[in-house]
């Protein structure tokens, strides 16, 4: 049976049907739709490259690209190192290890929409808001949080980092268990400090995982939608309109039958850009991760 046969096909069939119906067919359909003008109610017409031209001529596109890059940079600065530091610290502690990983993972368990609504409440920009009351006690603020173009994106990233860090921490913790203890012992005998152990033993050992989480983070941040959609709706004054939110707005913000052509065209462009980015990234880092 190892070579396959009818039974294999039978076992494979449900997966093929589910993926085909809910993943691949919509992808193919959206590629087709990006070359059409359609409101999904009346029959679509072929539009050639018109949708792509419309999207590229939209001044909001570049605002959205800039905002998405800004989110990605902030998320890398905040969201990438924090889980690693947390995981390394947690792996160093001897007692209550389970408690720490549970606490770190807890935000991931909270449904994202609930978390955002909760944080929206914390981010109340009046002096009596939760965060502003806390900061006010040490003489800071009130901070406008979501209500100002300069602080809105940072506020989104802080919440996003809080919400997602737990998952990455668990991945790092798992990877850290694969580091042979003898290497730490050897480093200790050589007189290495905690930082020395991390730099010379832990990080090189985690290299593969770090590379993967890095690209996952890039792909994830390029597709950020939930936070700007629920927190700010892209505001104030488009300062948090991201590429994915723009796609959503093309399709759904105009109540009279959205511009699904432009929405799918931009989705396609985003997918291609991310695909190319990932390919380049893996090519550049192949030698590094293998070494």
């Amino acid at each position: 049976m190892r070579g396959g046969g009818p039974a294999t096909v039978v076992f494979l069939l449900p997966m093929l049907v589910v993926f085909g119906l809910f993943s691949w067919a919509p992808i193919v359909q959206s590629v087709v739709m990006s070359f059409q003008e359609t409101n999904l109610v009346t029959a679509p017409t072929f539009a050639g490259l018109e949708n792509f031209r419309t999207v590229l001529a939209d001044p909001l596109l570049w605002t959205a690209v800039r905002n998405t890059l800004w989110f990605a940079v902030l998320a890398l600065l905040l969201g990438y190192p924090i889980p690693l530091v947390a995981a390394v610290l947690m792996s160093e502690v001897r007692r209550f290890k389970g408690l720490y990983s549970t606490l770190a993972y807890l935000p991931v368990v909270i449904p994202p929409v609930v978390a955002v609504l909760l944080w929206k409440f914390f981010y109340d920009a009046s002096p009596s808001g939760v965060f502003n009351t806390l900061l006010g006690a040490v003489g800071i603020g009130p901070v406008p949080w979501l209500q100002d173009a300069s602080t809105a994106m940072v506020s989104l990233v802080i919440e996003a980092t809080w919400a997602a860090a737990g998952g990455t921490v668990i991945i790092y913790l798992a990877a850290l268990t694969s580091v042979p203890p003898e290497q730490y012992e050897a480093a200790e005998i050589d007189g290495a400090s905690v930082w020395g152990k991390v730099w010379h033993v832990t990080i090189p050992r985690l290299r593969g995982v770090l590379l993967i989480t890095f690209i996952l983070q890039i792909v994830g941040t390029a597709q950020v939608f939930l936070e700007p959609f629920l927190f700010t709706g892209g505001g104030p004054a488009n300062s948090t309109t991201t590429v994915l939110l723009l796609i959503y707005n093309y399709a759904f913000a105009n109540s009279l039958g959205g511009d699904y052509g432009s929405a799918t065209a931009l989705s396609l462009m985003l997918a291609v850009v991310l695909g190319v980015l990932s390919a380049i990234y893996f090519r550049l880092t192949r030698s590094w991760s293998a070494s």
Partner: peptide, 30 residues
């Protein structure tokens, strides 16, 4: 949400819309 429901065919049989949308929906036979 209206567009999604309109396009997805998930609107109730009888629904309400603001005056502003009336003419457009009629022109497009939606």
């Amino acid at each position: 949400t209206f567009t999604t429901q309109l396009a997805g065919g998930t609107l109730p049989d009888v629904f309400t819309v603001p005056f502003t949308d009336g003419r457009g929906l009629i022109e497009r036979k939606q």
